[in-house]
Write a protein that binds this DNA or RNA. Structure first.
Length: 702
DNA sequence: GAGCACTGC
């Protein structure tokens, strides 16, 4: 412990914290900042007047760091040192140092906006710029003014970002603490490779034949490329002349790999054997692989991006940032000096790569965040000018307001409604919280809770990889319920209800290729949601399943009705002669139902006239994932609302976004000024009108 | 008829 670099800086750090309310700490990997900063401040008496809270972006980090600190102080975890993550609060009245995920701290500030119990708040790993950390930084800026005398804030960041954070916090001091990494030699490509898979492959073979022992970590973009590289590398390595070099093991590592295959990277290789690990950026921060001496960096990452004008997400392969490139390189220097081979030129590194990763707040839908901020009811703060380190575009904020208005979370003046206030208390995206509240009115809260919980776990649940399933046993997915023709929400409900009937037997999940961990997570989420809903409804809710089929059908009807209200911002209408849909709540887009959907066409081969969708995502084409058919009669009030939408009024009337003080807004949306005068939907008014006419015609037919 | 990087309340 004594050799941790940060301890040499203790006097300097304490002195700076005493003289300043906010301090930025640039702590390189291995500096010990996560475990030592809190202990230093504890030693110097900062826990006498309150708790030291340290946030982490990941659950595992919060738990493991808390455990380490408890050990170092020789106390039981949960007493003087504790942690709080979702579903698990291991703190007590004695707790003085508390590690928590930034999401949990945000929840806490919902019930206590001044965060009065804390004397110090440390935002760790702020350079990762998660949506939650960015929101917290904005809140901290406000909080330090209110609690000038009794709150200290420390923010840890990366070299390239430190001055920016300091500027944001009124030019607060920046301290740099060196890390304890071994030197890593950086080797660039001479030219931009045509195929990065091929150049990764070639570099891997070069290392294997020429370099001394040590494992190789290769950063790729996704499962597909990883599998390609693994099979090519195997082929090459095994064709090498026997005895010409050491043995090799080649391992894939990515998020959709079952946990039992993921842990293979943690077992030591046999002697005289080199491991190659082809990984996504899961190995950049979340998992640390020991024994890595060589890193091959493709220079790319797969990144999700939201488009506020279409409501559509896309998953793109993009260049990494310099911060990411350095993080990847650092993975080679953990145990001894290493080498990092970059599959791009040094010119590209200097001139093409962004300094820092585009923060999540500029890549996501902000409906949830805006609702959260509105629910805090900060008297002195205009949400649209909320002081973010990197402000989102005005277009993105308007989109959030529009969505919130369509689901009744804010009124036409942009003020939060009672419904909105309740929604903010639920740890769900706004559409699902709105669905729960509506379902409570229709007596189908039990089903809605299940659907919301299932969708919270999403992708990891169902058998994704058909190839493997087909090989083993045939009719796995056919064994699962089919949503009774109404779509995926109903199917998810039916699956959970079946599992409930089996008394949550994990073997039942395995038999049906459902991810056990995912299903257990759903059970936890559902329980948590039940508790919150019960508190809100002030009475006992009927939170368990309907017993017989007849009641189920009535339940499905009401559930779909509740979904239609909750997803008013995610509604689509089928086009006349085929099964393509047009989105109605955004600038109209032509989209398809994702082929994995269980929604069934009717006798004429047609899908439902109107559906709600959980997500729009462009992969090979624009798709709606998780859809549910809704009745035509339920749609009319929503279309009326869309038609009468006035974004200017929603954003507070007097607030003219284009003249806002937020530099980033203007810079990022140069064309905004023209479209400003009236509702952003005016251009599509005729299309909405046409939809209303088609709607009336369809209703007439029924 | 497609396939999805990673987190978190």
């Amino acid at each position: 412990m004594a050799q941790l670099p940060i301890l040499q800086f203790e006097e300097k750090i304490i002195e700076t914290v005493e003289q300043n309310q906010v301090v930025v700490i640039i702590g390189e990997t291995g500096s010990g900042k996560s475990t030592q900063l809190s202990q230093m401040l504890h030693r110097r008496g900062y826990t006498k007047s309150g708790i030291i809270g340290v946030t982490q972006p990941r659950r595992v980090a919060a738990v493991s760091v808390a455990r380490r600190v408890a050990e170092e102080l020789g106390v039981h975890l949960g007493e003087d040192v504790g942690y709080a993550i979702r579903f698990e609060d291991r703190t007590s009245e004695r707790t003085r140092i508390k590690y928590l995920t930034d999401g949990v701290l945000l929840r806490e500030s919902l019930s206590d906006p001044e965060l009065g119990q804390y004397s110090v708040i440390i935002l760790d790993e702020a350079h990762e710029r998660s949506l939650n950390t960015d929101t917290l930084m904005g809140l901290m800026k406000r909080l330090i003014r209110m609690r000038r005398s009794n709150l200290k804030v420390l923010i840890t960041s990366a070299t390239l970002d430190g001055n920016k954070v300091s500027k944001f916090f009124f030019d607060c001091p920046v301290l740099t603490v060196p890390g304890k990494l071994y030197p890593v030699e950086i080797l660039y490509s001479n030219e931009r490779p045509k195929s990065y898979i091929e150049s990764c492959l070639k570099t891997a073979i070069d290392i294997h034949t020429k370099e001394p022992e040590g494992d190789v970590l290769i950063f790729m973009t996704g499962q597909d490329d990883i599998e390609k590289l693994v099979s090519k590398l195997e082929e090459k390595v095994y064709s090498l002349e026997e005895g010409s070099c050491m043995d090799a093991i080649i391992l894939p590592l990515h998020g959709s790999l079952p946990p039992e295959l993921q842990v293979r990277v943690f077992s030591r290789p046999p002697p005289n054997c080199r491991r190659f690990i082809a990984a996504t950026n899961i190995a950049e921060t979340s998992l640390t692989v020991d024994g890595v001496v060589y890193v091959i960096d493709s220079g790319y990452v797969k990144q999700r991006q939201y488009n506020p004008s279409t409501g559509m997400y896309s998953l793109n392969v993009v260049q990494i940032s310099k911060v990411q490139a350095n993080q990847r390189a650092g993975r080679a220097g953990r145990t001894r000096p290493g080498k990092c081979y970059r599959m791009y030129t040094s010119m590209d590194y200097q001139e093409e790569l962004l300094d820092v990763t585009v923060p999540e707040i500029q890549r996501s839908s902000l409906a949830g965040s805006v609702l959260y901020l509105k629910s805090l009811d900060l008297p002195d703060i205009d949400i649209l000018r909320f002081d973010f380190l990197d402000p989102p575009t005005s277009e993105s904020l308007e989109d959030a307001l529009k969505q919130l208005y369509l689901i009744d979370a804010i009124d036409e003046n942009g003020s939060i409604t009672r419904i909105g206030q309740t929604m903010a208390e639920l740890p769900l995206e706004p559409s699902l919280s709105r669905t729960l509240i509506e379902a409570n009115e229709y007596g189908c809260i039990s089903q809605a809770l299940t659907v919301a919980a299932m969708l919270s776990a999403e992708t990891t649940l169902l058998p994704g990889n058909r190839k493997n399933v087909d090989k083993k046993r045939k009719h796995r997915s056919e064994d699962l319920p089919d949503g009774s023709g109404w779509g995926d929400h109903i199917q998810l409900l039916q699956i959970f209800e079946l599992w409930d009937q089996k008394n949550y037997d994990v073997n039942w999940c395995k038999d049906h290729d459902l991810q056990v961990r995912g299903m257990l997570f759903v059970k936890d989420v559902r329980k948590q949601l039940c508790q919150i809903m019960q508190k809100i409804a002030k009475g006992s809710l009927e939170v368990w399943s309907f017993k017989n089929q007849k009641e189920s059908q009535a339940g499905y009807w009401n559930l779909r009705k509740a979904l239609c209200v909750g997803y008013a911002n995610q509604l689509a209408e089928r086009m006349i002669h085929h099964n393509g849909y047009r989105t109605l709540s955004f600038k109209p887009q032509v989209v398809q139902v994702h082929p994995s959907s269980v929604m069934k066409p009717d006798e004429e081969g047609k899908f439902a006239d109107y559906i709600v969708y959980h997500e729009l995502i462009t992969t090979s084409r624009p798709y709606m994932r998780h859809v549910c058919g809704v009745q035509v009669d339920w749609v009319m009030p929503i279309l009326n609302k869309v038609k009468n939408l006035n974004v200017n009024k929603l954003s507070g009337g007097s607030t003219d976004l284009t003249r806002g003080t937020i530099e980033g807004n203007v810079k990022n949306s140069p064309k905004k000024e023209d479209a400003r005068t009236t509702s952003t939907l005016d251009g599509h008014d005729n299309k909405i009108q046409a939809a209303r006419e088609r709607f009336l015609a369809r209703r007439g037919k029924k």
